[in-house]
Simulated assay, not measured.
Amino acid sequence: MPTARIAAGRTPAGQGWQPYGPNGIYLDVDTSDARFSGSPVYVTSIGSTGGTQWGLVGPSAVYDATGTKFRVYVQWKDGRPLAPAHAQQYGWYINWIGYDNP
């Protein structure tokens, strides 16, 4: 019988962000190294090497989660345009913890 598994990780700072319309960006987070066997529950936060992440909404919402990946979308809370270059400039990254209880 499979046992519960907990794993955690962090994406590379500023890398992998993609545009989502004129005011948002998203990041696909690879969790395959965790070797989850089921559909884990993920908890996320956003970090930065250059600040400013306090002005974002969305980084704790997880989309399209599987045992090997999930996606997060972010935008400025005031609706200003946001592009992947901002994530690169500020070194944004996603911290994650996954709990899998197959």
Rank of each mutant, 00 (worst) to 15 (best):
M1G: 11
M1F: 06
M1V: 14
P2K: 03
P2N: 07
A4R: 12
A4D: 11
A4T: 15
A4P: 12
R5L: 09
R5M: 03
I6K: 08
A7Q: 10
A8C: 05
G9Y: 05
G9F: 05
G9S: 05
R10K: 13
P12S: 13
A13M: 03
A13S: 12
A13H: 10
G14T: 13
G14R: 10
G16H: 09
W17V: 10
W17P: 10
Q18Y: 00
G21L: 11
P22C: 08
P22H: 07
G24Y: 01
I25P: 02
Y26A: 04
Y26C: 06
L27S: 06
V29C: 07
T31R: 06
T31V: 15
S32R: 13
D33Q: 06
D33R: 05
R35K: 14
R35A: 12
S37L: 13
S39K: 11
V41G: 07
V43I: 14
V43P: 02
T44D: 09
S45H: 09
S45V: 08
G47Y: 02
G47R: 11
S48P: 13
T49E: 07
G51L: 10
G51N: 12
T52R: 11
W54Q: 15
W54V: 15
G55A: 12
G55R: 11
G55P: 00
V57Q: 12
V57G: 05
S60V: 15
A61P: 01
A61T: 15
V62W: 03
Y63P: 04
Y63A: 12
D64Q: 15
D64M: 07
A65Q: 13
G67P: 10
G67Q: 03
G67Y: 02
T68W: 00
T68Q: 08
K69H: 14
F70R: 09
F70M: 11
R71S: 03
V72W: 04
Y73I: 13
V74Y: 01
V74M: 08
Q75I: 00
W76D: 07
W76T: 10
W76P: 07
W76A: 05
K77G: 06
D78I: 09
P81Q: 08
L82S: 03
L82P: 04
A85F: 00
H86I: 03
H86C: 00
A87I: 14
Q88C: 02
Q89K: 12
Y90T: 05
G91N: 04
G91Y: 04
W92Q: 02
W92V: 08
W92E: 02
Y93S: 06
I94A: 03
G98A: 06
D100T: 06
P102A: 00
